[in-house]
């Protein structure tokens, strides 16, 4: 497909999905279901990954700090900075693009190939609003998941640092409190919200407009993952330049 045309239809989709809203009583239960599926259902993997990434970052930093003039608290400081600024918001989002994104593409794509979307349209339901809008709203809770990822990542760093004998608990804690800039948290949350929107909408786009059968559903999931990741990486660069640069 022509890239420019796809980007155009993506934005048309975004406009359409806010039109002719579904009855609130129904929308409410859809949103709750998606929160359960997309956000709560992902906490396990987010916690798992954050813990180990935090640990690895700490070990790497400790191993590279051989100069005795540099204070040991720098280990905690480096772990905190990398977890808050990049690993929690960006790295987790790439994982979510795979987990949540492929779920979204395949569930909407299956509805497309089995004519369930046509069935909605025939009844006079705005299928984009019905299917995509609740996912966007549910993923607005994504920053909470990222906050958890930050805590767990820094905690993982402490566990790896202290029990691996790379640093002491006291200097790690001193490090994570060093020169704390609250705006960095704001920056990370702004990124997460925008990534959440991307994770909800790009996979939906690929599922909604797919053609073909079951095989194409699989292909659409893969394509959606690639484009979601690309969008996240580019937006990460642009947002960092805008917000911190």
């Amino acid at each position: 497909m022509n890239y420019i045309a796809s980007i155009g239809s993506y934005f048309i989709m975004i406009r359409e999905l806010f039109k002719k809203p579904t009855k609130w009583s129904i929308m409410k239960s859809l949103i709750l279901k998606e929160i359960d599926e997309l956000v709560f259902g992902s906490l396990g993997i987010i916690i798992f990954i954050s813990f180990f990434i935090g640990g690895v970052v700490t070990i790497q930093t400790a191993l590279n700090l051989t100069n005795p003039l540099i204070p040991e608290s720098l280990i905690g400081f480096a772990a905190r900075q990398s977890v808050i600024l990049e690993f929690a918001p960006t790295f987790t989002s790439i994982i979510m693009a795979g987990k949540v994104g492929s779920y979204i593409t395949s569930s909407i794509g299956t509805m497309r190939v089995t004519e369930q979307i046509d069935a909605l349209e025939v009844m006079g339901v705005n299928s984009l609003n019905y299917l995509v809008f609740p996912k966007i709203i549910a993923l607005m809770l994504y920053p909470f998941a990222i906050a958890i990822a930050m805590y767990v990542g820094i905690f993982g760093g402490w566990v790896a640092g202290v029990f691996g004998g790379f640093t002491t608990s006291a200097s790690y804690i001193e490090g994570i409190q060093l020169d704390f800039i609250p705006y960095h948290i704001t920056y990370a949350f702004i990124k997460s919200i925008i990534f959440a929107f991307v994770i909800a909408t790009i996979p939906s786009f690929h599922g909604y407009y797919m053609k073909g059968g079951a095989l194409e559903v699989g292909k659409a999931s893969t394509t959606a993952f690639v484009w979601t990741s690309v969008a996240i990486i580019i937006l990460n660069y642009v947002l960092t330049q805008l917000l911190l640069g």
Binding site: K23, I26, M111, T114, Q116, D118, A119, M123, G124, V125
Partner: peptide, 30 residues
């Protein structure tokens, strides 16, 4: 549109809803 009913080639029932939920869907919606 609401005066039309359609039976699709592959039934096109909503997988996430029960039989009852599927039939009730248009009533709940409209």
């Amino acid at each position: 549109r609401q005066e039309m009913g359609m039976v699709f080639q592959g039934s096109a029932l909503f997988d996430s809803l029960t039989v009852e939920g599927n039939v009730m869907f248009p009533l709940e919606m409209f």
